[in-house]
């Protein structure tokens, strides 16, 4: 495999995802490019509908039909995974890329004990016997902080609280030791009082196991505490991406600036953007050129004509014509 020399684990290049609908094709992701290094935690923020979940779904190869990847490529450790056959992709999912979903109340099968679900997952990916897998499952439950794991392994999901269930989900996502996990708003559905615990747990486990994380969240506080880098998404594109400190302290893209200005203390959420007039366009009404141009205080003529690409802007990369000149 091509990896090794550089530390890049996942590379997404020019990813385009479309939904064919009766009223034409909706382009939901329009040329997404980013990479994640081994062991790195990349935060992804953006308003609702920006395409965060779709990006994660495309990476694990679980876009829901009719959604499909129509352009670009996704490489894991140098190897393309976006065009793998079903059977080969199943060996990537769970084994090399894990996934953590939003609502632990619905992500566990209610009719199977948590032990059954863990053992099944472990044995799908690792050559272990039933009893070895069970031991492994117990130690994972202990590792994610389920008290009395050995006694509770045969309990069913409904016998656990929301926070405990999300711990089980995390154990399920990590039990085959994947190199990376996609965590799509892993705490949004949880009680505020346990959100921090779950984030701390994920952070600790990722560090201990060297797992890279793509962490989708609305919570800038979480990004600041947890992530190495952050990608800001807008209308199916990446507006800006760079080290968390830089993006937060010295945002280059006007959208990011507005975003940060609207979050005076780093503990607010970016569900809505009061500071910037207007709303993110629907997929059917994305304007020509820069998708942000109707709301941008610095919009220029070129912004209404040409789509800006990601370019170096200070210590980050931004998709904005303001930085075109510097680069030429």
């Amino acid at each position: 495999m091509a990896g090794g020399a550089d530390a890049t684990l996942l590379e997404v290049r020019d990813l385009v995802v479309e939904f064919p609908t009766r009223r034409g094709v909706l382009r939901a992701l329009d040329g997404i490019s980013f990479s994640i290094a081994r062991g790195e935690v990349l935060g992804v923020v953006g308003e609702s509908g920006a395409g965060k979940s779709l990006t994660g779904a495309a990476i694990i190869g679980l876009l829901e039909p009719p959604g499909r990847v129509v352009g670009g490529e996704i490489r894991l450790d140098g190897q393309r995974i976006d065009n793998l056959p079903q059977a080969a992709m199943r060996k990537v999912r769970g084994k090399r890329i894990g996934a953590i979903f939003q609502d632990p109340l619905t992500t566990l099968n209610p009719l199977l004990s948590i032990g059954r679900q863990l053992v099944e997952t472990i044995r799908t990916h690792l050559p272990l016997s039933e009893s070895e897998a069970r031991e492994r499952a117990i130690s994972w439950l202990e590792e994610v902080g389920i008290p009395a794991a050995r006694q509770r392994i045969d309990a069913y999901p409904h016998e656990f609280s929301g926070g405990m269930r999300q711990r089980v989900v995390i154990a399920l996502a990590l039990c085959a030791e994947p190199e990376m996990v996609v965590a799509d708003e892993p705490t949004t559905a949880l009680d505020v009082s346990i959100q921090a615990q779950i984030i701390a747990l994920m952070k600790r486990l990722a560090a201990e196991h060297g797992t890279a994380v793509m962490l989708v969240t609305h919570d800038m506080g979480v990004i600041a505490e947890t992530c190495d880098r952050v990608a800001v998404m807008y209308a199916g594109r990446i507006a800006e991406i760079g080290p968390v400190r830089e993006v937060v302290k010295h945002p280059s893209h006007p959208y990011t600036s507005g975003l940060m200005a609207s979050i005076p203390a780093l503990d607010r959420k970016v569900a809505r953007l009061a500071q910037i007039e207007g709303a993110m366009p629907r997929l059917t009404t994305i304007p020509r050129g820069c998708a942000f141009n109707p709301r941008c205080p610095k919009a220029m003529d070129v912004c209404r004509q040409e789509k800006p690409g990601l370019r170096p802007a200070g210590a980050t990369m931004a998709a904005c014509h303001l930085y075109e000149v510097e680069n030429v």
């Binding site: 694990i60 679980l62 199943r90 060996k91 990537v92 999912r93 769970g94 084994k95 894990g98 996934a99 979903f101 609502d103 619905t106 992500t107 566990l108 099968n109 209610p110 009719l111 199977l112 099944e120 997952t121 799908t124 990916h125 989900v169 399920l172 996502a173 085959a176």
Partner: peptide
């Protein structure tokens, strides 16, 4: 969601259709 999560864990079609869905 739990079927989506089962798929995301790389379980095979037999486990998903019969072990998880049919039940």
């Amino acid at each position: 969601d739990y079927i989506k999560f089962a798929r995301a864990r790389g379980l095979g079609p037999r486990a998903i259709y019969f072990g998880h869905a049919l039940r």
